[in-house]
């Protein structure tokens, strides 16, 4: 599943970064605490978070994540969009809650796997 499909699945849109990067979701991590994210040893992570801050994008870059989703249609600071462009991390804004995103992404990944 690429980032455009992620955005579509979560009823959101890619608001910064390359929406056609072609990178596929390798793992899903849901967290708002960056140290928690840094613990995960997985490639091509999709990071689901509620925290609208530059640090989320910086963390995503550090762990080599393929994209970030921010939930509840939270307003995203301009600096966050800029950091996202600069570091090449696609950023998705979704109206869903993080919990709902987890469930939807999982369903979509499963159906992709099965069909």
């Amino acid at each position: 599943m690429n980032i455009s499909k992620v955005a579509e699945t979560l009823e959101g849109s890619v608001v910064a970064g390359d929406s056609a990067s072609g990178r596929e979701v390798g793992a899903v991590v849901a967290s708002d605490l960056m140290s928690d994210v840094l613990l995960v040893d997985a490639d091509e992570m999709l990071l689901l978070s509620s925290l609208a801050s530059d640090q989320v994008v910086r963390t995503a870059h550090v762990v080599g994540a393929m994209g970030v989703v921010i939930h509840d249609s939270k307003p995203l600071p301009a600096s966050m969009l800029a950091v996202s462009e600069q570091l090449g991390i696609p950023l998705v804004s979704s109206p869903l809650s993080k919990y709902e995103s987890c469930v939807r992404i999982h369903q979509a990944l499963e159906s992709e796997k099965n069909g």
Binding site: D32, L33, M34, S35, D36, Q55
Partner: peptide, 12 residues
């Protein structure tokens, strides 16, 4: 509230 201070920094 900024996503830090989970107390895992040094351990990580």
């Amino acid at each position: 509230s900024l996503g830090f201070g989970a107390g895992m920094g040094l351990a990580n």
